[in-house]
Amino acid sequence: MIGLVGIALIFIMVFGGYILAGGKMAIIIKALPFELAMIGGAGIGAFLIGNDFSVVKHTAKDIVKVFKGPKWRQDDYRDLLCLLFSLIRIARQSPVEIERHIEAPGESDIFGQYPKIQSDREAIDLICDTLRSASMNYDDPMQVEEILNKRMESSRQHALHSSHALQTLADALPALGIVAAVLGVIKTMGSIDQPPEVLGKLIGGALVGTFLGVFLAYGFVGPFAVKVRAVTEEDSHFYDLIREVLVANLHNHAPPMCVEVGRQNAPAHVRPSFAEVEEALKAIKQAAS
């Protein structure tokens, strides 16, 4: 919602201010389709040249983040802590039983209690791979933490590709606007024998190219890149919590202490309260008994 408000505010303030200052929209409206075709088409073409299909597809998907915001909410962090608590308890009590859950998480009744987490492949793979390694006696906390850090950093950098691609496009748009403006000037020079009122409209139409390139770069594409990056980094905290809890487990802390380590490492604005988590864990213990 806030993204839509921002877009509306940009249009109202830019064009509203222009009109209130006595500007005429007729020149802009007449030149806009042609300038937009040149600048937008060249920008999309450059974007396709500079990125492979997976980045293009990923970017198109990530633009939705500008309007939807982060994927993971406070309730999801609580659910993740509960899920990890249940899995750690099972792993401590029955190493054989935990294999049934980590080898087929899609069929697990434990994972099934948290469908949003179950549907996230990255989270499931991170949990299952780490628990599987521990069951194979690869349980050195320092080594596991180092591997998880490298894995998660690689995933984070991959997730940020769309943000980098959008920022590169934003940097290119003002220059493409100048290209469109130069073509407009060339067109104007071909009509140099026309009266001033005609030349004025032609020059005004040419300058629309410069305006449009800068307007799109700093009003839309650049902010989109910043927002996508911010949301991606915000969502990465969810996977950081998985690392913290599972590494604490390898240090042989009690399951509630592992959960508390993860809870305290969650960002403050999505961190569930101690009482909320404690109540959820009590419900899990009662259901298990």
Rank of each mutant, 00 (worst) to 15 (best):
V56R: 00
K187L: 14
F238K: 09
G16D: 08
L246K: 02
F47Y: 02
K116N: 09
L148H: 05
F220H: 01
F274D: 11
V179H: 03
L183K: 06
L207Q: 05
I88P: 12
L87C: 05
K68G: 05
F111C: 05
G50V: 00
A217P: 06
A170D: 01
A175Y: 07
A254I: 10
E146R: 14
P33F: 13
K30Y: 14
N265V: 06
I44F: 14
K30P: 04
H101I: 01
D171Y: 02
V56W: 00
K57W: 01
A170W: 00
P223H: 01
K57F: 00
Y218D: 08
S135N: 14
F67W: 04
P174C: 07
V66A: 03
P223C: 02
P256R: 04
K285H: 13
V214D: 12
H101A: 07
Q194E: 14
E153Y: 07
H158S: 01
F274T: 11
P70E: 05
A175H: 06
I88G: 11
C258H: 03
E234N: 10
G41F: 10
D62M: 00
V247L: 12
R92A: 10
A37E: 06
G112S: 05
I98G: 09
D235C: 01
A287Q: 12
L241W: 02
Y114G: 05
G213D: 08
F238W: 03
K61Y: 01
E107I: 02
V5R: 13
I28K: 10
A172T: 12
K57A: 03
R263I: 12
A266H: 03
G50C: 03
R121H: 13
G177L: 07
Q113G: 15
L148P: 06
G41K: 09
D52R: 00
L126S: 09
L80N: 06
H253F: 15
A172D: 11
S155T: 04
P70Q: 06
D139V: 09
L4A: 13
M189R: 02
A280H: 02
Q157K: 12
G23Y: 11
E145D: 15
G184L: 08
G69M: 04
I284G: 10
I90P: 14
I63S: 02
M136F: 10
P70R: 03
V270C: 03
L20V: 08
G204R: 05
